[in-house]
Design a protein around this nucleic acid. Structure first.
Lengths: 231, 231
DNA sequence: ACAAAAGTGTTTGATCTACACCCATGG
DNA sequence: CCATGGGTGTAGATCAAACACTTTTGT
């Protein structure tokens, strides 16, 4: 359908562009991090920003977000969730642009660290974020809020962990998300009581001499139950 | 800023239109209702739909949503919240349109019933909704989900009630939202225990001979506390 | 042998649930 | 005087929070 046709059909005269921006969070067994990029276009070229791009006409916005992620990080098949849409009139000095915000959760291994930095990207600790362009700081804050809210009722945390992980890792992750500590015994009791983790016989010895048992997330068991409060 | 300039600056060639659609919920002391409109433009003219319109270039999307609401219902100053953005490629047969969904909560009095029906609008019971155009049914379902989630942690229910209301009304409202009954004693205990309601000396006798005391919501008391779970 | 992280139960208080009768009043 | 909806308290169950010691093993 051509622009002319659509314009006639709906009698609209808009000059608004539609972009997506994605806040990519990663966990490396120690802390929650945010992936930022050096902006490549004017205005504000060279400043730190979330990864974003204009939507192509032939992609849904969800597909657009996926593609942005793939093109700018090489990552695909990862957790990606719509956050909210930012539409203040003057939010972008370059044009009238509304941006559909997304957030993405990924485990950060050695691979992801090096891989991603080939794209002019860098992982930042959440409490050491540089200044961000436009309303991207707001997006990040909103995303953290959304992750917290979401993490209470759904096991989204598992998207930040490798397929096999230890309970201490899981606890550290939730402590990073909620910025508080959890009692070790209560935490394990609660998580294991849900019956959604499968224990393996393997141990991870990278963080202690004793080693911690590796577990995997049992999605079927979770789907059967759908908890209302998770943590 | 002209289209040409912006296009040059960002080198974009998009033909996507941006609309807002708003799901307006009302409560009339008995049940939760949804306000629907007969669509006025082709395609699908005459079918039931949420109220919506294209965003004007000089308004933020939040302002756009407010204006749509004002123009199509005469209502202003009411609770309005962004839901999510719908961006499937072929969601609108008339053009490539993405729609930012909103939901709105209002008390429905005699006034609002008659007032609103001058606009080719009609209140429907939630379990008697007609077929809706495009993905509007999805928007409604998402909005109900969002209202439920939100109502658990914030007192949004009070936006659906008049300034003075009775506890039986409030309970009926929450029962409409969650589609379940609550024990009367437990409900009152919990709500009153929050200390966010001011009891008046007046009684509403419209639904019983004994009459029920009217209360008002004390926003200050609520802000002091910010509960994590509300119901 | 010791440092460092993993693993394990019990007790207490708070919260949630279930449950049934009296009250006030208009008709 | 009676039908109708408004108002009230308690006991048992469940859940959340606080709390400290033992185990394993690499160095």
């Amino acid at each position: 359908m051509s622009l002319l046709e659509t314009n006639l059909k709906y009698n609209v005269n808009q000059t608004i562009f539609v972009a997506v921006d994605c806040a990519i969070f990663g966990f490396d067994s120690k802390s929650l991090k945010l992936l930022l990029f050096k902006r490549k276009v004017e205005p504000l070229k060279g400043h730190w920003s979330l990864i974003g791009a204009f939507i192509q006409d032939d992609l849904s916005i969800d597909e657009g977000a996926k593609q942005v992620l793939l093109e700018s990080t090489g990552l695909s098949g990862i957790y990606l969730n719509q956050l909210k849409t930012y539409g203040n009139k003057d939010r972008d000095p370059g044009a009238r642009v509304i941006s559909v915000g997304y957030y993405s959760l990924i485990p950060v291994g050695e691979h992801e660290i090096s891989e991603v930095e080939e794209y002019d990207a860098k992982w930042f600790e959440l409490n050491e974020l540089p200044e961000l362009i436009l309303d991207h700081r707001q997006m990040v804050d909103d995303a953290i809020d959304a992750i917290r809210t979401n993490a209470r009722s759904k096991p989204i945390g598992f998207n930040l962990l490798p397929p096999k992980f230890t309970l201490p890792m899981l606890q550290t992750l939730y402590e990073s998300i909620f910025q508080r500590t959890f009692d070790q015994r209560n935490f394990r009791k609660k998580i294991l009581g849900m019956g959604i983790l499968d224990k393996t016989n393997e141990k991870d010895k990278s963080t202690s001499k004793k080693g911690a048992f590796l577990y995997s997330f049992n999605k079927e068991a979770y789907d059967d139950k759908t908890y209302e409060t998770f943590i």
